[in-house]
Design a protein around this nucleic acid. Structure first.
Lengths: 116, 116
DNA sequence: AAGGATCGTTTCGGATCCGTATCATTTCAG
DNA sequence: CTGAAATGATACGGATCCGAAACGATCCTT
């Protein structure tokens, strides 16, 4: 329990962050896509379509389509589960790891710029 | 320069935040809409369509449509500038202020829960 | 081996959003 | 007073996303 933040700082952080992401990224990820991406990169594997859908409280097609999109961007990749070939395991990619790392650094930088 | 955050904490914060917003809001605001909303609520008025478009680096119709949408949600309201009736000033609403306040509190709460 | 259950994908109709181009209104300079 | 400039709104075609339902592939029980 360490990161203390006042509401005004929180809102400015949120604003600056969204501003930055909207401003330069032509094709920005939606909130759902970011949540999926971060879930895969932060929580322990394996990640299945069904599991992600349940965790995010959305339907399975939403996950399938998000994987299509982010797969095309090479931020994530599908792989069939060899043990149970009905399952699809969602895995990280080098490009995705870089993207996530950049995202984290952006938040850190914006937080550091916040006024007291 | 006060709010220190490690990248792993930043990513978890981002994840938890997006997760929360995706999970319960059926109809979530886009990154652009959130940026517009927070700009109006955090930066000093007046806010015009043209000004917001320039600040966010998007076209004017994007702002017009966002105002349509968020106006229907009563998070913002338009008003004609009496001094120059070509201008539209974007103003806050009670409902919008509550929404923004809730958003700020959510970030604060999620930040407080972060592991050291 | 057969039937049902599970999983991810696809299809469908509908809604939303985008940027470009155009439009109506208002202001202002000559 | 008239025409150009500026502002926000609208029309349009295209892209994307949504949830519900149907579908094919795979597994599992019996």
């Amino acid at each position: 329990m360490a990161v203390d933040l006042r509401p005004s700082q929180a809102l400015k952080l949120l604003h600056d962050l969204n501003h930055e992401m909207v401003r330069d990224d032509d094709r920005d990820l939606s909130a759902r896509q970011i949540t999926i991406l971060l879930t895969v990169y932060l929580e322990p594997p394996p990640h299945t379509v069904r599991g992600l859908a349940a965790k995010l409280n959305v339907t399975k097609p939403v996950i399938t389509r998000a994987l299509d999109t982010m797969g095309r961007m090479e931020l994530l990749q599908r792989r069939r589960d060899p043990a149970d070939r009905r399952n699809v395991v969602v895995q990280r990619t080098v490009k995705g790891a870089l993207y996530v790392e950049r995202l984290g650094d952006l938040v850190v930088a914006k937080a550091k710029e916040l006024p007291l």
